[in-house]
């Protein structure tokens, strides 16, 4: 099950905890994986951990040219057209709505929503031709439930779910699926910074009584990337320990 031998994949934001884990899991399943992110050194380190099945394609998704060229660069580095796109890169610029600056609203929408859509659009050509493709968007529980201080982030993540459903309908008959994975609270460098009191409060809202692990997100991505998930499209798979049941 879930054999990705002979497949190619691009994971954006592969320098992060979740992105790195997704890349590893896809490579372990046999895919050749292109790792994208802004920090070249970190990308090289993740690629070295993965071994022969990884290539590095640095890109800054807040830069238009970088976004426009990424699929082509990844396909060149992979030596073939893309089978699996994982839009995992994301940024936050948290602030209460009343204090949120225009540029912080825009930056989050540009990277988290617009660049992800463009990468999906630019990868469709090859997928359509081969009648096979997997687009997997890492959204967030916040895109469905909202969260104070994250109007921009929630808008981008909800928007991602929306365009995924539209695109899924457009390309379903071509063997291409488009799905989202929505993590809840996952242990990463970012959540490690929370204080004990904050953590305790958070855990109170999670029926599973613990934070999630990046591996648990990667496993959901692996399933959606597999041939076995061919009949699943336009869906959002929530991986959140029961924190929100939607």
């Amino acid at each position: 099950m879930f054999d990705l031998a002979g497949k190619t994949a691009l994971v954006t934001g592969a320098t992060g905890g979740i992105g790195g884990e997704i890349a590893k899991v896809l490579a372990e399943a046999g895919a050749k994986v292109a790792l994208s992110g802004t920090r070249q050194e970190r990308l090289e380190a993740v690629a070295a951990e993965i071994g022969g099945n990884a290539v590095v394609v640095p890109a800054n998704l807040s830069d238009k040219e970088s976004v426009d060229g990424l699929i082509k660069n990844a396909e060149e580095a992979l030596g073939g057209q893309l089978d699996i796109l994982v839009n995992n890169a994301g940024i936050t610029r948290d602030q209460l709505a009343m204090r949120l600056k225009d540029e912080d609203w825009q930056a989050v929408l540009d990277v988290n929503l617009t660049s992800a859509f463009k990468l999906a659009r630019n990868s469709l050509r090859g997928m359509m031709k081969r009648r096979h493709g997997r687009i997997i968007n890492i959204t967030s529980i916040v895109g469905v439930t909202g969260n104070p201080g994250q109007t921009n982030y929630a808008a981008a993540k909800a928007g991602m779910i929306g365009w995924s459903k539209s695109l899924a309908q457009e390309v379903a008959a071509r063997g291409i699926t488009v799905n989202c994975v929505a993590p809840g609270f996952i242990t990463t460098a970012m959540t490690e910074e929370l204080g004990d009191a904050q953590k305790e409060k958070l855990l109170g809202g999670i029926p599973a009584g613990r934070m999630g692990d990046s591996k648990e997100i990667a496993a959901a991505v692996l399933y959606l990337a597999s041939d076995e998930a061919a009949y699943v499209t336009g869906q959002t798979l929530h991986v959140n320990g029961g924190m929100a049941m939607i």
Binding site: M128, E170, V171, R174
Partner: peptide
């Protein structure tokens, strides 16, 4: 409409 896009391709 998607067929026409594919034809052009």
């Amino acid at each position: 409409s998607l067929d026409t896009v594919e034809l052009v391709m």
